[in-house]
Amino acid sequence: MKALRTILSIAYAGAIYVFIFLPVVVLVLFSFQDGRLPVPPLQGVTLHWYGEIFSDSRLMSALANSVLVAVVSSGISCLLGFLAAYGLARYTLPAARLQRALIIAPMTVSTLIIGLGLLSLFGALGIFRSLWTVGIGHVVINLPLCFAIIYGSMGAHQVNVERAARDLGAGEWQVMLLVTVPMLMPSILAAFFLALTFSWDEFIIAFLLSRFDVTLPVEIWSMLRSGLNPKTNAIGSVVFLVSILLLLVMELLVFRKPRRAS
């Protein structure tokens, strides 16, 4: 009976893992396809398509744009999110609940709607679509996230340390930069990296709010029009690799806390 249950568990988990990994494996495997179509049979192994993507200037500038937008918008989101969290956690302000709700609100609205709203407003104001407008949109979706993460980690024990610093004569900014920020560093970094991955991968706002300079997901989207192509597999595999590396960096930087014995 117990053996049967174990076998069933393994079979089920195995089947779901196959389902989960199937597209990724096919994507990466056929990025090495020595032929024009990224479908079976595998006709041989080549790095030709990786060469193609690295010599494609449009793709490479889209990649650079994506990195730029992701880093700048995540930085701004973290900065604004941290300041708001600090203000709301350390001071009593009128309608604090309402303020929190307002800052969190964009998280509950579909990005398509946020993008459309910004697109129509920018259109009415005569603001041209560019990487700047994409960045503004990304801050709108990432600010609630950064705020929520940082606000959630502001606990009572930090207040005591801050009070001690103040009693010892530290000014407001000194307390914030030398005491609060270092104590909250893990959650600030977590917020930053999470925002980074969201912005890096975001499509719909970037699609609606960009024009000539586009981000990587938008460029990949336009590559899809030419149908199935091993080149798309290659860029997809590179993006996957970069995301995994980001994940590892985050794991090492943020969650390297001493393991609790369990």
């Binding site: 597209p23 990724v24 096919v26 994507l27 991955t197 991968d201 975001e202 499509f203 990587l216 997901p217 990949i220 989207w221 899809l224 798309t232 860029i235 997809g236 993006v239 996957f240 995301s243 995994i244 994940l247």
Partner: peptide, 11 residues
């Protein structure tokens, strides 16, 4: 962590 557009393309 594969890109969002790429995930659909893979399918």
């Amino acid at each position: 962590w594969t890109s969002y557009v790429i995930r659909s393309y893979s399918w």
